[in-house]
Amino acid sequence: MARSEFLGGMELLVLLALIRLGDEAYGVPIAKMIEEISRRSVAAGSVYAALARLQEKGFVSSTLGEATAVRGGRAKTYFRITARGLREARRARQTLSALWRNVPELQGGSA
């Protein structure tokens, strides 16, 4: 069996937000999307910590964007999922779906 690192919970959330946001993915919209969908507050620091880990694993690449006055002259960093990251997201989905299946406690109802 292949030995690979599992995606952490926050890493998976960030990766899925990246896929949904496409070219507009930088810290603020990523955090906002996770907050809206999970209905929980998210610290920007934990989003960037997850992004740093994903980048180390080669699942995410980044490009420098424009600097604006409202950001105190600091450039945005846009993130994009790599082919490897996409494969890993699919694998995570398969694993989670398989674990989800046939568990009576998880059938029906809403979160």
Partner: peptide, 17 residues
């Protein structure tokens, strides 16, 4: 001080504004 520090600070300033 790492490379993600600057964009993170920028994001926080943007949200604050």
């Amino acid at each position: 001080t790492d490379p993600h520090g600057e964009p993170l600070i920028g994001d926080l300033l943007e949200e604050f504004a």
